[in-house]
Nucleic acid binder design. Sequence first.
DNA 1: ACCTCATGCCCC
DNA 2: ATTCCGA
DNA 3: TCGGAATGGGCATGAGGT
Length: 511
Amino acid sequence: MLFDDVAATSAAVAAASGRGAKTDAIADLFRRADPADAAIAATFLVGDPRQGRTGVGWATLRDAPAGSAAAPSLAVGDVDESLSRLASTSGPGSQAARRAVVADLFARATAREGDFLRRLLMAEMRHGALDAVVLDAAARAADVPVAAVRRAAMLTGDLGRTVAITLGAGSTGLAAVGLEVGRPVMPMLASPATDVADALGTGPAPAAVEAKLDGVRIQLHRRGDDVAVFTRNLNDVTARLPEVVALARSLPVDVFVLDGELVGISAADAPQAFQDTMSRFGRDDAASSPTVLRPHFFDVLHAGGDDLVDEPLAMRRDVLAEVASHYVVDGTVTADPAAAARFLDATVAAGNEGVVIKALASTYAAGRRGESWRKVKPVHTLDLVVLAAEWGHGRRTGFLSNLHLGARDPTGGPPVMVGKTFKGLTDAMLASQTEALLAREAGRDGIVVFVRPELVVEVAVDGVQTSTRYPGGVALRFARVRRYRDDKPAAAADTLDAVRALGAGTVRRSG
DNA sequence: ACCTCATGCCCC
DNA sequence: ATTCCGA
DNA sequence: TCGGAATGGGCATGAGGT
């Protein structure tokens, strides 16, 4: 199959307005491809090729020429090979070698292929179709129920393989796919709730209320001495976590799949700040960090030969207590919002992020962000000064979008930048802020428009973290705009000290 | 030897 | 990660 | 209700440059 077939499909997907039409365009491609090519094409269409890390980014592509070939000649397999070469290039001179591979690809590409190639290497397809649409298209092409395809994708964690199975073996092949110890499953996700009452819902049934730890999600697999650890994105991080491997081998059950969170702990057994956990977790050499990582499990997908994903949470929790009793996340079971709120306050005071509230009757819905798991975190608000804004892309083209936010200097100096945000802005706010900001323009640099520091926005944040990027030494975490404070002058904005105070909770960074 | 920049199926 | 919007 | 897009800060690493 020609690479241009995939590029043409992407263009058709981008041009199609509805999801049904996008699905049809991809299904048409799949019908024309053999399963192996379709598997590669599927990973290209979602911008996630099998080679993973290519070492090519914005700076490498900046100087790459546009596609200039007159007619398509690249095969899907040619691009696949080039990606493999990029991924395996390292050492001195590798930057130049990568540029050469990229230049060769673009030289052989037409303009349409070059455009697609650029988006593929940047992992930014922006044609309105990713995993869900591609799986839907595979189901349509093979004329099998989409639910069966999705189930296989969640259990294999592998889009390309799932497409190949769907096209090559149909319903029979999909039905044969099951949970496999040692192969990661897409983790179940929680949807946000405004407070514990919202999370508990209207029903009288008690729910599990568990501490939400501010660390790294892990999935731990064991079969005898074979142990593997995967992240939320199904990356294999086993080699980085020797202590977790040892812990897995020490547990009283031989075969299992556990779901949990990994957090650095201080000498006093208190959870460390996320940044300290990452400092240790991100490291190749575990011994070079003083931080000790400790897993806290909250679910079990398989134990002793039994698959548990279709069992109710109440039963899975009982099994978990047997498999990993000393490493089960802190929690309680209640239907009472007041009791849940008390647990939330206590766990936050202990240095945790919030709570996750789970229906006891729910099964493990791999890869889903459903209503069975709801997360609640404390929210803080700040009134900050808009210092600048950046021109947006995509559907935000033509609007000033990403705001630079400053806190007031209590000594009277100019506001101190503490972060940016583009979240929380409706189309109407985007339009009105573009007008209001341009009226206060004070200069430009690239896509940044600087403004006189007069406008104040109310910003919601989950907290602040230490920063080396910003002059105040702090940065906002997950900032989003709530509203413009037209009633407030910049002189009444919150101070840098007020921002720093949000980081002075129970969790401290280690020195 | 040290600094800067770019990169990441990065983590959140 | 959070949020808004189209389907 | 779901899926996609638009973008945030910080971390270690490794290449390249001084």
